[in-house]
Simulated assay, not measured.
Amino acid sequence: MRILLVEDNLRLSTYVRRGLEKEDFTVDGVGSIADAEAALDTAPYDLMILDLGLPDGDGLDLLKRFRANDRHLPVLVLTARDGVDDRVKGLNAGADDYLLKPFAVEELTARLRALLRRPDGVLGLSLKAGNLTFDTTAREVRVESSLLKVSRKEMNVLEQLMRRAGKVVPKDVLESKLYGFDEDVSANSLEAHISRLRKRLNQAGASVSIHTLRGVGYLLSDGGDS
């Protein structure tokens, strides 16, 4: 899942990004309202983490404009404002959850996954395709009962394909979910992940495989790989 982190404290932003990336999230960090608005207009996000005390304004103003434009991206407010009135204002402005600083990144991760599991959210607890099962909480992939060892990027590729099993996933959609703005990505990086993942599935006896549609994207379905 791709997350936009709006936090101007560089030390805290780095702490959150590293923690979430270890949990297989792709995170773009920005430090102002202007940069947040630009990012939201540029990339498809699954969730936004929003600080309120930003150098160019109040994060609540960004949230109000965001909701006024009928945008339904889940938003978790991350702030040191601990008054009841502050929390009420945040929730009334359109926040889906509210976490006070200081916090443990483990709790933040759990709250994010809870938001993404809500109705119309993007994160199901368990994904299945053929004899392949993906536990999105434990971050484990199994073929039948056997654990399949894959890298984090391969796991993220597989997750996106399983969420759209039987449908073509365009290459640019996959890349937008897997890579942040500041990642150095080679031209064939995605293809390399797909190739390794396809071999692992085949060797493990998976009943599904990844098909390449040249110039279009990738498809996870029953049958031999191509």
Score class of each variant (00 low, 15 high):
86 D>Y: 12
86 D>C: 08
87 R>N: 07
88 V>W: 13
90 G>M: 13
91 L>M: 15
94 G>M: 03
96 D>Y: 04
98 Y>R: 08
99 L>E: 11
101 K>D: 09
102 P>V: 01
103 F>P: 04
106 E>P: 01
106 E>V: 07
107 E>C: 00
111 R>L: 09
111 R>H: 05
112 L>Y: 04
112 L>K: 03
112 L>H: 01
113 R>V: 03
114 A>W: 09
114 A>N: 12
115 L>M: 14
115 L>Q: 15
118 R>V: 00
119 P>H: 05
119 P>V: 10
119 P>D: 09
119 P>I: 07
121 G>T: 09
122 V>W: 03
123 L>V: 07
127 L>I: 12
131 N>Q: 13
133 T>G: 11
133 T>E: 15
134 F>W: 11
134 F>V: 07
135 D>S: 02
137 T>M: 14
139 R>A: 10
141 V>H: 01
142 R>I: 01
145 S>E: 12
148 L>H: 04
148 L>Q: 05
148 L>E: 08
150 V>G: 05
151 S>T: 09
152 R>G: 14
153 K>C: 06
154 E>S: 10
155 M>R: 15
156 N>G: 10
156 N>H: 05
158 L>Q: 05
161 L>I: 06
163 R>M: 15
163 R>N: 12
163 R>S: 11
167 K>D: 08
170 P>M: 13
170 P>C: 13
171 K>S: 13
175 E>F: 05
176 S>A: 15
177 K>W: 12
177 K>T: 04
177 K>R: 14
178 L>F: 05
179 Y>V: 03
179 Y>D: 03
182 D>F: 11
184 D>R: 15
187 A>C: 02
187 A>N: 07
188 N>R: 10
193 H>A: 08
193 H>W: 09
195 S>Y: 06
196 R>I: 00
202 N>V: 00
204 A>Y: 01
205 G>M: 07
207 S>M: 13
207 S>C: 06
210 I>W: 06
